[in-house]
């Protein structure tokens, strides 16, 4: 199974515990372990939403916008693509990420086009 792991900043989360974030394992350790094992395939930090570029085609014209993008309370701070045998393995990997302590992680299962709609 392939998962897109979104790394979110959640500054308004009332349950955030800064002291737990402080004590979380450093990102270098996570990267070393999971890119080293091949569980993480590709990933990066992302620039803030103000630097994002929107692209859409309407009426045959390419419209490029500079925002505003999703006005949520969360920001997408980074992403990684995981290759894991199952969800529990992906959850275990995600729960070791420092931003699981200091923000939130979302695991999005890949949905390959050749699946029969399930």
């Amino acid at each position: 199974m392939r998962y897109l792991m979104l790394v979110l900043g959640t500054p308004h989360d009332p349950d955030l515990r800064p002291e737990e974030f402080e004590a979380a394992p450093p990102i270098e350790e996570w990267v070393g372990r999971h890119y080293g094992s091949g569980a993480a395939v590709i990933g990066d930090r992302l620039r803030p939403a103000e630097d994002a570029v929107g692209v859409r085609v309407r009426g045959g014209k390419v419209l490029v916008t500079d925002g505003p993008f999703s006005e949520t309370k969360e920001t997408i701070a980074g992403f990684d693509v995981l290759e894991a045998p199952d969800l529990d393995t992906a959850i275990a990997i995600a729960s070791e990420h420092p931003m699981a302590y200091g923000g939130a992680i979302e695991l999005h299962p890949a949905w390959p086009l050749d699946l029969d709609g399930s």
């Binding site: 998962y3 969800l87 299962p109 949905w111």
Partner: peptide, 9 residues
């Protein structure tokens, strides 16, 4: 269960 990759483990 199928879509998210929950396995019987």
């Amino acid at each position: 269960i199928r879509a998210t990759g929950i396995t019987f483990r």
